[in-house]
């Protein structure tokens, strides 16, 4: 009898452990679905989207420029010394441009925006949740997902590709600075290689990644903030801090996993 009841407890605990993430995944799916659907429901929240484009996009320009420049410069430096061993330093433009446009541009842009805007989204929505502001929206019959999440998704879908493009361009210029200006590769060769090796599908692949990352990042960050009150390991401000951490870590990991999946599909 004791063994049976012990077994029962074990099975039910296992069941709970299995069901909880599946339930969460379902909740995330529904949350994301309504977030996207509500972008297109009337009346359009034009000004809120613009406001978020400013926050997610315009205000990230500086940090993206900075990281893009240094990433390109490091790629130029590393690429030069690697390619010199094979006597093919003329290929530097291709190496820098392709690695930036295909991989590093979308991924690093997403990671930087997660750090700057994703964490802020999770914290802002989390604080709204614990201070009953989201409940207040519900009592006013204002759909909180439409009000808070949809403009952010729309803004991220607009901003991420633009920021990625900026990152790529600045990165290529960074590679040029180290490769040509500092290390002496002919600038014509550098840009000719960039032009000849980058195909449209590389560019569009990078943009597809940027759009998918935008959806992943905003969905995860907003979701973590929105359900702060359901966290069992911490309540109130502690809950918000945990949600913010979780939003950043989860969306970074998911960006990398999604990147692998998308690369394998797009290649």
């Amino acid at each position: 009898m004791t063994i049976m009841s012990g077994g029962k407890i074990l099975v039910s605990a296992l069941g709970r452990q299995t069901l909880a993430p599946i339930r969460n995944l379902g909740k995330l799916g529904t949350f994301f679905f309504w977030g996207v659907v509500n972008i297109f429901t009337l009346p359009f929240q034009f000004f809120k989207v613009i406001e978020q484009v400013c926050f997610i996009g315009a205000k990230s320009v500086f940090v993206i420029t900075l990281t893009g420049a240094f990433t390109g410069m490091v790629l130029g430096l590393q690429g030069y010394y690697a390619l010199t061993k094979f006597g093919s330093e003329g290929m530097l433009g291709s190496a820098v441009a392709l690695s930036l446009i295909r991989e590093m541009g979308p991924v690093l842009t997403a990671v930087m925006v997660i750090g700057r805007a994703g964490s802020a989204m999770a914290a802002e929505i989390g604080i709204m949740r614990i201070s009953e502001q989201i409940d207040a929206l519900e009592t006013m019959s204002i759909d909180p997902v439409r009000f808070l999440v949809s403009p952010r998704i729309a803004a991220a879908v607009i901003s991420f590709p633009l920021l990625t493009a900026l990152f790529d361009v600045i990165g290529i210029i960074g590679g040029y600075i180290t490769g040509s200006v500092l290390l002496g590769i002919n600038s014509g060769v550098y840009f000719a290689r960039v032009e000849s090796s980058v195909l449209m599908k590389d560019v569009s692949g990078g943009f597809i990644k940027a759009v998918v990352f935008a959806l992943v990042v905003v969905a995860i960050c907003c979701f973590q903030g929105f359900y702060t009150h359901l966290r069992k390991e911490g309540f109130g401000s502690k809950g918000v801090s945990l949600s913010t951490t979780s939003a950043v870590v989860t969306s970074c990991v998911l960006v990398l996993i999604t990147d692998y999946v998308l690369t394998s599909i797009l290649l």
Partner: peptide, 20 residues
């Protein structure tokens, strides 16, 4: 339910004002 809810208004204990 939605239509019914629109007839309601709620004043929260902690006010729940939008701080931004």
């Amino acid at each position: 339910r939605k239509a019914m809810k629109q007839k309601f208004s709620y004043m929260f204990q902690g006010n729940a004002l939008f701080d931004s």
